[in-house]
Design a protein around this nucleic acid. Structure first.
Lengths: 217, 217
DNA sequence: AGCATAAGTGCAGTTCCTGCAAATATGCAG
DNA sequence: CTGCATATTTGCAGGAACTGCACTTATGCT
């Protein structure tokens, strides 16, 4: 087995990989189209399969479950670059910085904008899928807790001075997640008309207003 | 059909109703016991049925789904009394008041404490059930948004002065939900050792600390 | 062209869940 | 106590999601 060989089979645009990607896309396209037409619960995987001309077994090889075909195809993880910026930033509060970080990583839009929006709409009108999407996001929460802790440590805070530092980090992430859910919901409700930047700005402003109405120190 | 008759059949402790409640309880007991023993995904409804000596069809008559048997049996809606107090209160900020309101309504413990804790533990160690529980809670969010808006109006705020008042209410609820998820997670992690009051106090204190570290007005 | 590997398929079987109709239990009237 | 209306439980047939396994087909080298 030569180096050539290795290079060829692992290259991301071999015939095989391109074909795989194309099949994957056509299945998702069919699934979303059928979903918007008949509603999620009235679409069977057999329908998706005949529409995209594959066997049910292949469908499950690709997506693992019926819901899987409607899941976000993004990794949604911030780049190392962004992570460092967040950890070492001191410009603004954790809340705003983390909110922006997550927003940026969510907004790396699908290659296909049309499909992306169709998918969003379907998810929006299907509570079951909406819940799944939410839990997918919250699975990353532990990662973000780690980032926040790194940032705290970078600022010189530690467990000796603040015994419940981990709790504080968890709560920050939980609060930001709440704000994020609000923002995303508003985004789909507005039919994606606002830019992510505006959205972030508006939400931040609202948070500030709420905070200033509390009797907090 | 006499009034006597009507009174008897609708009374909540007729033989029928008591029997129903007993069956319901015994099914749940069996399901949770099996869940803790084998893990949620390795429990089939047939197993639950033979353990509680009913037919599968009856199981679905009672709970509608396998997950249903593990769902919280509480309504988790605040009483009218509490609602009014929240709407008309002016002591503290919305955030703290809403957080307390929701916490109180969640904590009306099950009649059977042992079963309640067993259920909590099982949910805690079963991501799928945990997510379901979360979405069940978030279905009440619209109700809470209504409460917050009522409170705003009671304080003399309205859409004329604040066009995005509804957005503000939604965001408040989203933020409180985040804090609530944190608190509940901590509660199960601590094995229910802290009292709900402590939990609320600790979480509030953390929120205040976080807020004071932000550069908010 | 031949061959190793990857991708796709067929099929049998499990589990969750539903509709429908039949069997059974309950509680009241007479 | 007996019968009757109503509530509860059950059996059965079947649909849909999903998995494991063995088998065929396609791909990309040499």
């Amino acid at each position: 087995m030569s180096i050539q060989h290795l290079g060829a089979t692992t290259s991301s645009d071999s015939l095989r990989n391109r074909k795989r990607a194309a099949t994957r896309l056509s299945i998702r396209r069919a699934a979303i189209e059928l979903g918007l037409e008949h509603g999620y619960e009235h679409v069977t995987v057999d329908m998706i399969c005949s529409a995209s001309k594959i066997s049910p077994r292949t469908f499950f090889n690709y997506f693992g479950s019926k819901e899987g075909v409607y899941a976000s195809p993004n990794r949604a993880m911030p780049s190392e670059q962004r992570r460092r910026t967040f950890v070492e930033s001191n410009n603004s509060g954790v809340f705003d910085d983390l909110f922006t970080l997550i927003a940026d990583s969510l907004v790396e839009v699908d290659s296909n904008l049309e499909l992306f929006q169709a998918r969003r709409q379907l998810i929006h009108e299907t509570p079951e899928l909406l819940h799944k999407e939410k839990s997918r996001i919250s699975e990353l929460e532990e990662t973000y807790v780690g980032y926040v802790l790194e940032r705290y440590r970078f600022q010189g805070r530690n467990n000796a001075k603040t015994p419940d530092l981990a709790d504080e980090a968890h709560l920050v992430v939980a609060l930001v997640s709440g704000a994020m859910r609000f923002a995303m919901q508003k985004w789909v409700a507005d039919n994606f008309s606002t830019t992510p930047e505006e959205l972030v700005r508006n939400t931040s402003a609202l948070v500030h207003r709420i905070a200033s109405n509390e009797h907090w120190p």
